[in-house]
Amino acid sequence: MLDRGIVGGYTKLGYLSRRPGWTGDRADPPAGALHGRTALVTGASSGLGEATAIGLARLGARVHLLVRDADKGEQIRRRVTGAVPGAAPRVEVCDVGELADVRRFASDLLARVPELHLLVHNAGLLPDQRRETSEGNELTLAVHVLGPHLLTALLRPALAAAGNAALAGRSNGATHAGGDSRVLFVSSGGMYAQPLKDDDPQYREGRYNGTAAYARTKRMQVALAGEWARELAGTGISVHALHPGWAATPGITGSLPGFARVVGPLLRTPEQGADTAVWLAGAPARAIGTGQFWHDRAPRPAHYFPHTRETPAQRARFWAQVQRLAPRHDPATA
């Protein structure tokens, strides 16, 4: 009922009303739950990314902060270490929307990080007009869908190594607070208004609207997470999508100033918005499974309206399109 009312569920009202009921497997992960585990957070320079990085560091994770700007990365590194004394986050520089840069970065990271326990796809933007990357992809599609897809595919060996180690530990009777390795897609409740646009992923048809493009690609993220969950079933890698509710982040205040002014007092803090991502990172594996859409530590429906429900054939076409648009190898050098 809170979510159907939107304001009650997506603002801090929903967070504060639900939090007292978070017990058992939905309770806060214990201190040190991610000790010895490695996490990569994209879009880590502010807002939800910064709050997620701090939350993971507080649980003991070794956090890699993926940013586009090295100077901003150094600023966030200092903020994380200030918030979590003893943490040693590492700044990584990559433009997630540029696939060639994703390939470069992934190759470099694999050489340095043999096991990756957590990959958080948080990087996002809401453009005011249609733009394309240097490779000809519509910008929101590139940043929200193609880059994350390619990064997941390229980092699969490190994720699998961490997942296999967790599976071996469980089979030997050991316990891992975080369980398997995990991939998280930070989507948005705005995706509920949009169907899966498998017929026009690049938003070339009709009049472009930045808010609609954002919501479309956030819907795509949920579909992509589901396809990756099926692809990785049984590998020790679980995949999840989530939405953070409405949080007071630079993305909201900068891209939707009118909305921020109206809803401002009810917006969640970045920490409240990042809560489900941090919880998913440290929750027991038995509590989360794989392939679900989460909000406030609970699985939620991926659709509320019949007209937004995609068919299995649409999901298959979408998966094939993403693989074609974001190949593992640079087509120019293949």
Rank of each mutant, 00 (worst) to 15 (best):
A229R: 04
N209G: 10
A215T: 09
G226S: 15
A229M: 05
G206R: 08
A213G: 11
A223G: 11
H240K: 08
E205A: 13
M220F: 15
M220G: 00
L224Q: 02
A212V: 13
P201G: 07
H240L: 08
G234H: 08
A223D: 01
A225K: 02
Q221N: 02
K218H: 13
K218V: 01
R216Q: 15
M220W: 06
T235I: 07
I237R: 09
G234F: 10
Y208F: 10
V239M: 09
G234V: 06
M220V: 02
R204T: 00
R230M: 00
E205G: 04
L232G: 02
Y208V: 00
R230V: 00
T211L: 14
W228E: 04
G206I: 03
R207E: 14
T235R: 07
G226M: 09
A213I: 12
N209A: 08
T217Q: 14
Y208Q: 09
M220H: 12
L224F: 03
A215S: 11
Q202E: 02
G226D: 08
A212D: 09
E227A: 10
W228A: 01
G206A: 12
T235K: 00
A233S: 11
T211Q: 09
E205P: 00
T211P: 10
V222P: 05
R207F: 07
W228Y: 02
E205D: 04
G234P: 03
S238D: 13
T211G: 12
A225L: 00
G226Y: 02
R207D: 15
L232S: 06
G206S: 12
W228N: 11
I237A: 14
R230Y: 01
A225S: 14
A225V: 11
E231T: 06
M220A: 09
Y203T: 07
R216N: 15
I237D: 10
G236P: 08
H240S: 11
T217A: 11
A233K: 14
E227D: 13
A223H: 00
H240W: 02
Y214H: 06
A229H: 06
A213D: 12
V222G: 01
A229P: 02
R216M: 10
G210K: 09
Q202T: 06
A233E: 15
M220R: 05
P201F: 13
I237T: 00
H240D: 03
G226H: 08
